[in-house]
Nucleic acid binder design. Sequence first.
DNA 1: CATGAATGAGGTTTCATTCAT
DNA 2: AATGAATGAAACCTCATTCAT
Lengths: 218, 218, 218, 218
Amino acid sequence: MNIYSLNHEIAEESPPALLGRKERHRLLRRADIIKAAEHVFALKGFHKATIQDIARCAQYATGTVYLYFEDKNSLYFSIVEEKIREILRILRLKMAQVKGARMKLEVFIYESLYFFEKNKDFFRIFIQEETTWSIKSKFAKSIIASKRREAFAELIREAQAEGLIRKDAQPGQIKDLLESILTSFAFSWWQNDSKREKDLKAMTGIIMDLFLNGAKKR
Amino acid sequence: MNIYSLNHEIAEESPPALLGRKERHRLLRRADIIKAAEHVFALKGFHKATIQDIARCAQYATGTVYLYFEDKNSLYFSIVEEKIREILRILRLKMAQVKGARMKLEVFIYESLYFFEKNKDFFRIFIQEETTWSIKSKFAKSIIASKRREAFAELIREAQAEGLIRKDAQPGQIKDLLESILTSFAFSWWQNDSKREKDLKAMTGIIMDLFLNGAKKR
Amino acid sequence: MNIYSLNHEIAEESPPALLGRKERHRLLRRADIIKAAEHVFALKGFHKATIQDIARCAQYATGTVYLYFEDKNSLYFSIVEEKIREILRILRLKMAQVKGARMKLEVFIYESLYFFEKNKDFFRIFIQEETTWSIKSKFAKSIIASKRREAFAELIREAQAEGLIRKDAQPGQIKDLLESILTSFAFSWWQNDSKREKDLKAMTGIIMDLFLNGAKKR
Amino acid sequence: MNIYSLNHEIAEESPPALLGRKERHRLLRRADIIKAAEHVFALKGFHKATIQDIARCAQYATGTVYLYFEDKNSLYFSIVEEKIREILRILRLKMAQVKGARMKLEVFIYESLYFFEKNKDFFRIFIQEETTWSIKSKFAKSIIASKRREAFAELIREAQAEGLIRKDAQPGQIKDLLESILTSFAFSWWQNDSKREKDLKAMTGIIMDLFLNGAKKR
DNA sequence: CATGAATGAGGTTTCATTCAT
DNA sequence: AATGAATGAAACCTCATTCAT
């Protein structure tokens, strides 16, 4: 059994049936707008995308957007948060299905790449596109982002405890390093290979290898 | 002798004495504006920085900026290009002063970190800030950027040829790995330590180690 | 019965009742702006008139103008086109009410002068004022302008066929001549007499006379 | 003998020998700039032509223009005045060489057309292009323009006195008629025939005919 | 006199946000 | 709740004019 055989169907966190009809309705509208915004932001970038573009794309009126989101920044921020929440949920779920730091690490890398692949439009915004500084720092301080950092740090700590990862580097450093490697490979794929239908997930092996063993010849 | 003892004075490429008084004057003005722009862009980000801000900061009139730069994009692009040109020049110079792939690699890392340290304002723009997509792609296609890529690739090839670096990974992947590690440490330093006057250059050792040996415990 | 007794009430081309409330509202706003623009252009000329002037005069915000017109050129062009459309409609209607080239000619001159009188502000722009070359050529190619030229040429041809006008000159030449005479008299009136409440229409007779019989003593 | 055989060499009004060397030098510079301005204005129109364009075209520095002309308006105005002064001088000279109102009239028409032909660039500015209202009205009030009007009126009065031209129309109206015809033919030629090297002067005959006998069939 | 770099006021246009319907 | 017309602040960029060299 390897990570590729894990169940990819993800249970919903909170069954919507518990919400009132109105609230459900509201969430649907909100989701419509977020989806449209994701698309438009990815297409035009944060600054060139107008609220009208997004509203039209979601088939609502301009003003309607403001019933669901404070302002443009907030809308953008919501997309980011939603995505982080999603990947966090996926990672937790999947990592719980395997045992041992090595397997968890592999799952972590695999799922991260997979998520990137599925959401490349979104990452086009987040990694590449123009974003207001204020949004980024607001995000850095958000609860969801810190939860994600914690989960990540936990993984590293576990791997260090199990003796998989060296202890002469700070967990934070290792975490940043892995994150950076993932980003870098994903970006490279996105620039060069994403159109050629190459498989980003398939790079899990080489990334694990490089991350753990480094670049030195043996 | 180690890399820390290398000559840090860098010979000018083109002795300014050869330029006419007017041309020299022009270059000084241009430099003033670039410096101010660097500062203002770093402070406010690309979109929120106005040409007037930059002009005021350089103590010129708004229109003066347009005597030296086509438009805002062009000004921004010029800053980036100038920086890349500079780091490229430094890296070439310093790497030529040492022998062997290992030493070159160490110099490469050391000087990259050092340059980052000296130009943290600039990198605040480049790495973190909002940039128009069109500028980035224009930059990606620029000669200076491709030269930088080449220099990098050359280093990797040499290290592979000398048997320092494994050949079972593509050079591009090795490059991504190193770039990831550098970025990751630089960014982390920038966020946490830059104000505490910690020394980024001093991380050369751990970075070499992580790059060559990976994160695995031995 | 003479041309002065013709019915001056002109039937609307398209009964506005057929338009939706919104569309009617839109047309009213548009008309407001056109009216204000006409006034401001006449007062200050095309280049010195600012969109803000026009908006203020129409008691709208600056941006509102851009909801109804692409840009300044387009606004100007719309005014011109509207006027030409109007005079064309009037001329057709009135000329259809009389028989014979001579009468039609008289009506043509009379109505042209009358229209000029009623719209002297507008002609201050069109004849006298500064206009971008590009607008003029755009206008020259417009359908409405070519329709007007056709209607005019048709009149001349008819007059030639009936033996009223000499055939040893090209219809185009005669057409241009009459147009030029009308413009010239109108301009003269506008400069000298318009403030003294003199009647431009009343010059129909002398213009007919000079146009047909020339300046020679008989 | 007819008007075509008149001497076309025109004596200078004021022999430049009487001016000091400096003053002559100054006038040459001025003429350079006027010539360049004529060209650039004709090419780009009043508003789109910049002082720098004109200076460059005349091979002077921007500031130099301001040593010879108050400002942009004034430069434009000077061109117009210069041209009017020239045509006035020519008309007077040539009309003095013939006897009789009919001959004078013919000369007037012929020379006007000829002048137009030689200066079509200039007329492109004056007739067609955008000009500030203030300039036009300033011009209308200028001495040189009033002199031209006088010369014109004088011709008409003479022709009326000799019995060539009807007295039942006001001289101003006759003037407008002739001016209309000239403008109309000149404009038409300019639009259609000027590039095909057709001869505008050759239309003197038909213009005389239309002016004296009108458009009526006989 | 000549130069041309510097100035900075001012116009067009965009677009996030509001609010009356 | 939804709409979308109206708002108006703000930014880029141009260019007539000045003035130190």
